[in-house]
Design a protein around this nucleic acid. Structure first.
Length: 557
DNA sequence: TGCACGACTTGCATGCAACCCA
DNA sequence: TGGGTTGCATGCAAGTCGTGCA
């Protein structure tokens, strides 16, 4: 698909900004219609059973299904849910149901639990039937034709209705996400294709033929009023080329990053406040891999920030802390309300600038009051074609992986030890980018299990060695292989334990999928004779097929 | 210049299937 | 063979950034 000769020349397939010439697909798959509850499943109001109208019942089931979740105990969630639920009630229901606290959904909740239990208990044949039906749906709706290629669609199913769950302290949690109908859907395909048919008796909102965009269908979601799209899978040509381009931009930054760094250091001394702010912000983005930090509409989303939107309350300055000078302490909620906490020593000039920016400000004031992402990105664009704040994250992530791999890899290591080194390099990047996860619920237990296995293996090994000694006395060497094999197994387990422990609160997936130039990994695998399957699973290999084709063992980011 | 909007990327959590072991 | 574990796919929320308009 992509010729290796073009390695350094990621191309625009079309010069007029169009993304395709031909696009044909079957349209989306809608959520199954609501099935009313059997009469025996009761909803109680104020202790008395009450039959709900279908629309009110459906929304009630969304709440009932979540009863075990912490969300349903939160005031905002309950308030938002109740308000939207009432809109679905008949006037009679509205006048009867006046207090959510008097609503009892537990019978419904138990019914759903029993249902999911029953699903687990289904016979093999029944499960197979469902699997086949899913496969049929995938074959029919899961692919499209784009410019002579059959491509996998990323999300061909429309999101079902339900209760909105934001992340962090979201002011809209609990609101009703309404059901999407064909009348809400805009279809995008080429004129000369076979247009998708809406379900019998329905119509699409619109059918358009816009080849300047990559999406196949879209609808407007009712919580934030934003548009949702049906797009292609990461393995598709259109996503792959874009991904490749992204890494090529980061590689161009590598060539001029020294110049840019010298420039912003110089700008720390500027007469103009806005230039100093821009330079300090850029320093943070570069050094700490912070996100750009767009402004957000207050009250519409959780209160999170990035670099440009940092507030006074998010940093603390310590002229001296322990044995270090000029320390900045960051403490704020970033994307997805993940906490960013870091104490780092900075250069004196940066520190003095920060003190200046803080003068006469309240905790809730912007740290960089003369800066926003658009100003910053305009500046970056002047420094390098295609440069934006997020390119620094990609660049620093990829260059860190490359450096770490160089440092950690050792030719004498076994394959598992090499893979551990890879994971550690990956981990360094995840830490830099603050990619965290909640420790798995079963973490402690699974660590214990692993330790038990290690102990057993150790016992096995010493037994085998004893046996070997005895055998040697008998001039039989055949047991040597055996202890060697056990040693290998033991080592593998120990490596696994180390890896898991170090990974307790770190999520590697995001950096691997979005920030690390896959050609670095492919080259490393070739250089150290590690099978690519050890690094990338099947889906990842499909996504990075372009890189697997392209990179040789001497590839340099 | 500021803002709203649209398109696309990034991100964590969840749920399920495959796997493993007793 | 069942029950727990693990790895992976999926879901969908929440970012970034460019554009067009007043």
């Amino acid at each position: 698909l992509i010729s290796p000769r073009l390695e350094c020349l990621p191309f625009e397939r079309y010069t007029d900004g169009s993304k395709w010439r031909f696009l044909e697909h079957k349209g989306p798959v809608f959520a199954p219609p609501y099935e009313p509850l059997p009469d025996k499943v009761r909803f109680y109001y104020d202790g008395k059973p009450m039959k709900l109208s279908a629309p009110a019942e459906e929304v009630a089931t969304f709440f009932a299904k979540m009863l075990d979740h912490e969300y349903t105990t939160k005031d905002i969630f309950r308030k938002n849910f109740y308000k939207d639920w009432r809109k679905e009630m008949t006037s009679e229901e509205k006048s009867k149901i006046t207090d959510l606290n008097k609503c009892n959904f537990s019978d419904m909740n138990e019914y759903f639990k029993a249902q999911s239990e029953a699903r687990k208990q289904m016979s093999k044949e029944e499960k197979l039937k469902i699997k086949e039906e899913n496969e049929r749906l995938l074959q029919e709706y899961g692919f499209c034709i784009m410019d002579n290629h059959k491509e996998r669609i990323g999300n061909f199913r429309i999101e079902p209705p339900g209760l909105f769950r934001g992340r962090g302290d979201h002011p809209k949690m609990g609101m009703l996400k309404r059901r999407i109908r064909p009348e809400d859907i805009i279809i995008n395909c080429s004129k000369d294709s076979k247009h998708p048919k809406p379900p019998p008796g329905t119509k699409w909102k619109e059918v358009r033929h816009d080849n300047k965009v990559t999406w196949l269908a879209s609808w407007t979601e009712n919580i934030q009023g934003s548009i949702k799209y049906i797009m292609l899978n990461p393995s598709s040509r259109i996503k792959g080329e874009k991904d490749w381009q992204k890494y090529e931009t980061a590689r161009r930054l590598k060539k001029c990053v020294d110049r840019i760094r010298a420039q912003y250091r110089d700008d720390w001394k500027s007469k103009e406040m806005r230039i100093r702010q821009r330079a300090v912000a850029l320093y943070f983005i570069d050094k700490l891999a912070l996100r750009a930090g767009n402004e957000k509409e207050e009250g519409e989303t959780a209160d999170t920030v990035g670099c440009c939107s940092l507030r006074v309350e998010h940093i603390k300055l310590y002229p001296k802390l322990d044995d270090q000078e000029y320390v900045v302490e960051f403490d704020f909620l970033g994307k997805d309300s993940i906490r960013y906490y870091n104490k780092i020593p900075v250069e004196k000039r940066v520190f003095k600038n920060l003190q200046l920016f803080l003068e006469n400000k309240q905790p809730e004031d912007d740290l960089f009051d003369r800066l926003n992402t658009s100003i910053l990105n305009k500046h970056l664009q002047e420094l390098m074609d295609g440069l934006t704040a997020k390119v620094f994250r990609t660049y620093n992530a990829s260059i860190t992986l490359q450096q770490q791999l160089k440092e950690l890899s050792c030719s004498d290591d076994s394959i598992p030890a090499k893979v551990l080194s890879y994971n550690r390099a990956n981990r360094a990047v995840a830490i830099l980018c603050n990619h965290q996860r909640a420790p798995p619920k079963t973490f402690e237990k699974s660590m214990q299990n692993l330790q038990t296995k290690i102990d057993e293996k150790q016992n096995q090994l010493s037994a085998a060695r004893k046996q070997l000694k005895a055998a040697k006395a008998d001039h039989k060497a055949s047991h040597d292989d055996k202890s060697k094999k056990i040693e290998e197994q033991l080592m593998k387990l120990q490596v696994q334990a180390t890896d898991r422990e170090e990974n307790k609160q770190i999520a590697l997936g995001t950096s691997k999928l979005n920030y690390l130039d896959p050609r670095i990994s492919v080259a490393w695998c070739k250089k150290w004779a590690v099978p690519i399957e050890k690094i990338y699973n099947k889906t990842q290999r499909e996504k990075f097929a372009w890189a697997i084709d392209m990179a040789e063992k001497d590839y340099e980011f």
